[in-house]
Design a protein around this nucleic acid. Structure first.
Lengths: 224, 224
DNA sequence: GCCTTTTGAATTGTATACATATCATAATAT
DNA sequence: ATATTATGATATGTATACAATTCAAAAGGC
C-alpha cells in the first residue's frame, strides 16, 4: 500500500483551496499557522509550500513568507495568451494526428446533452482533455495542465456571466470538431485561438475593473 | 544585503552539474551524502531537491530517493517538439510585435563575427533570447527557459557533430531575421520550426543508438 | 530446489530545538 | 517635529534526533 505522506496531503489541500478561491491571491500562508491547522509540524508544510512555489501557485511576500500568488494585469494577459496559443497548437497537432477512433470519441463527447452549468463544465473539461490527448505530446499536455491550474482561480469568475456564453462556447466547440474531422490543422488552431480568446476576454473584462493584484471574485464553475 | 541561503546554493550547484553533464541521468542523489559534501544538514538539501523535482530536473527512484531525471526516447521527442513549437510561436509573435529598434538590435546580434564554438554558442543564445523578449510574453519566455534547461543535458551532445551545422544554423538564423523584418509571422514561425527540427534531429540521431534512459555523452557547447 | 516469510540495515519522512534575519515600534538626538 | 537608530518580537532558515518505510538478504517451510 502507498504510505500517506503528510506533505502530499497538505499540498493537495492547499492547492484545492487556492484554485477554488477559498484562499485568495495575497493571502498569507504562515508556516506555524498551517502546521497547527493540519496538526503537523512545519517540515511537511514547508515542503508543500516550496513545491507550490515552484509550480507558480504561491510566491514570497514580506519576511520571505509565502503568500497566494498575485497577478498583475500584464501577468494575467501573458498567462491567458500562453494558454490560448498552446491550446491552439494542440488543436493543430490533434487535427493531424488523431485516429478515426479518437475523432469518433471526440464527436461523442460533444453529442452529450447537458443543461446545468456543472454538466457543461464537465463536458468542456472532457473536450479539452480529449484534444490534449489527441495531440500526442505529454510535455505539451503537462504544460497545459499547469497553466490551467494556475489560471483557475481567475477563470472561476466566469460563472456569473451570461448563460449565452455557454451556447456560443458550444457552437465554437462544434466548429473546432469539424475542422479536426476535416484534418485541417491550421483552421482548428485558428478556431481554438478565437475560442480561448472569447472565453478569456470575459474573465479579463470582469477582473480588470477590480484591483488585479488582490482578489478575484470567489465562485465555482468553469466555462472555457 | 541579501542573506546567502544554503538551499539556493545547493540548488544552483546541483542544477549546474546536471546541465553540464557532470551528474548524469539516473545518478543517485542521496540526501546524507549531499549534505556531507556541501557541509550542511539534510534540510536545505531536501529543499533544493524538492524544487528541482518540481522543475523536472530530478525524479524519484527506488526507496523514493532522488535521482537525476531519465528520459525515454518518447519523452525526449515530446520535449524537443514542445521546445520547437513554442520557439516557433515566439518567433511569430516577435515578427508581429518587435519595434524597429528591437529589429535593429536583432540584426546587430547576427552581424557579429565569431569563429570558435563558444563564440557561436554565445551568439546563438543572444539571438534566441532577443526573440523571446521580442515576443513580449513573460510566461512563454519562462516556459522556454525551463524547457531549455531541462533539455540542456541532452543537447550538449551536439558539440561533437560536424562544423557544417554551425554554418547552416547561421544561414537559418538570417532567414528568420528576414522574415521578422518583413513582419511575416507565419513564415518566421515555419522557418523557426525547421531550424529547431534540424538542430534537434542531430541530437536525437546521436542519442537514439545509445540507451536513452541512461547517460547522454558528456560534453560542452550548445548549437541550436 | 524454489518460494514464502521474516528480520535487519539503510534511507527517507517528520518533529522539535535553535540560529538568524526581518520588520515594527519606540526612544533619542538633531 | 522629523529623522535616525536601537531594540525587541515574530517568522523563517537550519541542524539534529527520532519514527516509519522500503528494499534486500537470509532463514525456514513446502
Amino acid at each position: 500500500m502507498s504510505a500517506p505522506r503528510s506533505a502530499d496531503q497538505i499540498h493537495a489541500s492547499l492547492s484545492a483551496q487556492i484554485v477554488a478561491g477559498q484562499l485568495r491571491p495575497g493571502d498569507p500562508l504562515a508556516e506555524a499557522a498551517l502546521a497547527d491547522r493540519f496538526n503537523m509540524s512545519r517540515t511537511p508544510v514547508r515542503e508543500a509550500l516550496q513545491r507550490m512555489a515552484a509550480e507558480g501557485l504561491v510566491e514570497r511576500g514580506p519576511r520571505r513568507a509565502f503568500i497566494v500568488r498575485r497577478m498583475t494585469p500584464t501577468d494575467l494577459g501573458h498567462m491567458f495568451e500562453a494558454l490560448g496559443e498552446i491550446e491552439a497548437l494542440c488543436a493543430r497537432l490533434a487535427a493531424q494526428r488523431m485516429t478515426p477512433i479518437a475523432r469518433a470519441q471526440l464527436t461523442e463527447i460533444l453529442a452529450v446533452e447537458c443543461r446545468t452549468h456543472d454538466d457543461y463544465a464537465a463536458l468542456n473539461r472532457r473536450f479539452h482533455e480529449a484534444l490534449r490527448l489527441g495531440a500526442g505530446n505529454q510535455v505539451l499536455s503537462d504544460l497545459l495542465a499547469d497553466l490551467n491550474r494556475r489560471t483557475l482561480p481567475w477563470r472561476n469568475a466566469q460563472f456569473h456571466t451570461s448563460n449565452g456564453r455557454m451556447d456560443s462556447s458550444r457552437q465554437e466547440h462544434h466548429a473546432i470538431l469539424q475542422a479536426i474531422i476535416a484534418q485541417d490543422g491550421d483552421k482548428a488552431a485558428a478556431l481554438m485561438r478565437d475560442h480561448m480568446a472569447g472565453s478569456l476576454a470575459v474573465v479579463l473584462a470582469m477582473i480588470a475593473p477590480r484591483e488585479t493584484t488582490g482578489n478575484p471574485p470567489p465562485s465555482r464553475g468553469v466555462t472555457p
